[in-house]
Amino acid sequence: MTPWLWLAAKIGFAFAYLVGAVPVLIMMERRISAFIQGRQGPNRVGPMGSLQPLADIIKFLTKEFVVPLRADRWLFVLSPLLVFVPPMLGFAVVPFGNQYGDELLQIANLDIGVLFSMSVLSLGVYGITLGGWASNNKYSLLGSLRASAQLISYELSLGLTILLAVMIAGTVDPVRIVQWQIEHGWNLFGGGSLWRLPLGLMGGLLMFICALAENNRLPFDLAECEAELVGGYHTEYSSMSFAMFFMGEYIAMVVMSGLITTLYLGGWHFPGITDPTDHSWVGALLSIGVFTAKVYVLLFTYVWVRWTLPRFKYNQLMDLGWKVFLPIALFNLAAMAIVGVILEG
């Protein structure tokens, strides 16, 4: 196949992978929340309720799209797209599998690697902010303000934890980070060195917590907390435009889980299941399967945490971000630098 065809195939696959994850996540969210609360959850539509997301989508599609009076029409329509697109772009550098032949199962092998994901994911805040402002609703505006402050605060710690993984592996190229982890062990466990073990554990945990905050998930979903802000920044959105916000959020979760998997959980490799030297289609499929399994374990944790922990207060959220996570992340990075020098010298 020509390179262009390969690229198109991989982009198509990634698109299907991300959008296809949304119904699965809707189902997971609803069933797991039900199970945690001792209920059954939706199980009537289709076998085991598996067609429930389809019913939800039909409902979204058939509802009326309302633009509030005195809302800013342009930005109001544009912002759901701005939420939807950045996470999709962020997936471009995540290696979702091993090789097939000579073709890396990664859309773009950029030499800035994970930095690309970081920078693109940081654009996701615009959709939320502008959407809330354009709604011309004070609850939406408050939600957007909270979201933007929260996202910039936690982006710092998130970036530092990403850098920690980069420092452990010594490269920003996600493919080589995965390679490094195959040779030395998961970054979560310090990449095979006892010295780095506490740093890796701390970094992985911190990255997951910051990812919760970045994706506006409970316990950090202050931007849309229904108790005080009705629906937060998407209060005024209806039908498909709301669904876009919804999907954007879930896709961002999948992409973030993919990043955590790549940076800390050994990417597409699991000893005994995948063979890094196996470049046949079986090996490629297996590696995609392992990657997917890891991503979904993380997504399960997202949902599990959501239905376990209560929401923070806003000042607590900010304190946690700036006074706890940021110092820990900085300390982690400094300690990693020292440990790195000791290990090499």
């Binding site: 930095l115 970081m118 920078s119 654009l123 615009y126 902010t129 402002w133 303000l145 933007s148 910039i152």
Partner: peptide, 18 residues
């Protein structure tokens, strides 16, 4: 380019908007 997007659009402009 990456740092430009990360710092200017991802942080500074967000602060402006904020």
């Amino acid at each position: 380019a990456a740092i430009h997007v990360l710092v200017y659009t991802g942080a500074i402009l967000v602060l402006f908007v904020f």
